[in-house]
Amino acid sequence: MKPRVTPANAVVVALIVIMSLLPVYAAATGNTFMMTLFTRIIILAIAAVSLNLIMGYGGMVSFGHAAYLGIGGYVAGILAKEGVNSGFVQWPFALLLSGLFALGVGALSLRTRGVYFIMITLAFAQVVYYVANGLDRYGGDDGLTIQRRSEFGGLVNLSNKTVFYYICLVLLLGAIYLVWRIVNSRFGMVIQGARSNERRMRSIGFPVYRYRLVCFVIAGTLCGLAGVLLANHTNFISPALMYWTRSGDLIVMVVLGGMGSAFGPLIGTVALLVLEEALSGVTEYSQIIVGPLLLLVVLYARGGIDGVLRLRHG
């Protein structure tokens, strides 16, 4: 893995430089619009990175990944509503619960393959969605406004937009690094090996199911982190956070950027959300363009943007 100057690497470096300098631009011009947009992009990119770990590298197409966004967000929101504002409690608890949920879902759904796996992960996410709808005390389907962001005992102030932005950015880069390390470890090799040829991995003697389950839990926990961040960013949670089309959006981000590529999910998230933002300025009906574009990417640019930049096909 020697870094070389390729179009893909250049884009990634440029993107990171721009993202690091955005708050400076915001402070200089007083225009915080881009920073707010990118805070959202960064948070969703963390979710996409986590999905890429299981989908891109592990071949596990989870169609219920938004559930973890919801669980992370709801843990933060519910604790805040009950008067527990400390991030030292909220965050670990959110990650723990997301991980436990992933453990349960993974333990059951990893017994199935292919389309059944897609559908069962979707089904579990829908259950969480309806549970959130039924949480009357926490707003039901109207959602819940969070009065105060997580507090870290005066260490950092999340209400400061710039501080929050940089925290998200650091967490995103940390997440990408973590996934990169996992993928290039022995563990990651087993996961990728199981994607290409499960039977062979099993006959070599690897307990593929357990490896996959651990991988699934890591991804779910990481996505739970994105959920906490998202709740803190918008100061609001609602079941819409985990409606099934949100899970679809996450898959789109990963595939658009390039599956199984370290920075692909980031590129995909930036591309999708910036495109939507740009189109929404031009037309009210942006999805008429985004939808067919997606179909074209699926048909002709299977490697996503990352693949195109690397001049790789299929």
Binding site: F63, I118, V255, E284, Y285, Q287, G291, L294, V298
Partner: peptide, 20 residues
């Protein structure tokens, strides 16, 4: 199957805005 999910998901959001 992932291609189906994505491609037809694209069609779904396309139709929503087309109808609108």
């Amino acid at each position: 199957h992932l291609d189906h999910v994505l491609g037809t998901f694209g069609l779904l959001i396309f139709f929503n805005d087309l109808v609108r």
